[in-house]
Simulated scan of single mutants.
Amino acid sequence: MNRDAFAEFLRARRARVTPAEVGLPEGGRRRTPGLRRQEIAQLAGMSIDYYIRLEQGRGPHPSRQVLNALARALMLSQDERAHLFHLGGQPLESPLIREDVPESLLHLISFMEEVPAYVLDARYDIRAWNPMASALMGGLESTEPGQRNVIRWVFMSPELAEHLDDEEKGRFARASVADLRAAAGRYPDDRALRALVTEMLALSPHFAELWATHEVKVRREQRKRVVHPVVGVIDTICQVMPVPDREDLRLVLYTTEPGSPSHQALRELRQLTLSS
């Protein structure tokens, strides 16, 4: 159990919940945002002393029953609840990140000839991709293996994230950090993941600022505006799909609205891959 990280997460989430959201009166002026410690303890059905010790990083190892009660009191989402359990030493899944990609998945993305597709692991390393993904993102095959990390692109190498416009980079930065924090909770013993977080905290003030918010949210579907140097602006639907039996991998697909200018731009990009 990481007591310090557990305590920080409790404090950050408590500050986010308002009295009105849990049916409590405002009770006059509050010195700090969110609920008071006593209110969380009451909602979770535990003593105020016990809760204070948890927030101070000196409480006992919480049981699953306690973690469930805290998740309800803090109004945690499904992703945040899983993160709380991992920080509390009660992981909901096996903490293992592998570096292989199933052959069936490689075949699948190769058959997607008109859709940019790649395989992303929990560390945000791109493990495999098809020609359309490489064309969209600027030549993945020519990038050093150690540099095919999307987190490093966004925060440390803007030239490698040129396929996103500036506004999109801001939204993606926040979403990716929230997702990475969820992964750090699921895989607390993964050295490479811990090293990535340590590196980014030291080198990127923007990353450190977002990391300090303790936002936890697994990425799923979102819309992205991609700017390609040849075919122009492409408004895509970025679908992030879990891989069956491999919780550490996700399949990322870029699709467009049928018949839209962006759909036509993707078709033009497809022609470029065929002629190159």
Rank of each mutant, 00 (worst) to 15 (best):
N2W: 12
R3D: 12
A7P: 15
R14Y: 08
R14A: 04
R14D: 06
R16C: 05
R16F: 02
T18M: 07
A20N: 01
E21R: 11
R30P: 12
R30I: 07
R31M: 14
G34Y: 01
L35F: 04
G45F: 13
G45R: 15
R53E: 03
G57E: 07
P60C: 10
S63L: 14
V66R: 05
N68C: 02
L70D: 12
S77Q: 07
Q78A: 05
H83V: 05
F85Q: 00
H86Q: 02
L87A: 06
V101G: 09
P102W: 03
L108K: 10
S110K: 13
E114Y: 14
V119F: 00
L120G: 01
R123V: 01
D125S: 10
W129E: 00
W129C: 01
A133N: 01
L136P: 05
L140M: 12
T143G: 03
P145E: 04
R152M: 04
R152K: 07
E159G: 03
A161Y: 10
A161R: 09
K169S: 07
R171L: 08
A173V: 06
L180Q: 13
A182M: 02
A184S: 11
G185W: 00
R186V: 00
Y187R: 00
Y187K: 00
H206T: 07
A208G: 05
L210K: 13
R219K: 13
R219I: 02
R225F: 05
I234S: 12
T236F: 13
I237E: 11
P244D: 06
R246W: 12
E247N: 15
R250A: 02
Y254K: 05
T256S: 14
G259M: 11
S260I: 11
P261V: 11
H263L: 03
H263R: 07
Q264T: 14
A265H: 15
L266M: 15
R267F: 15
E268S: 13
S275T: 15
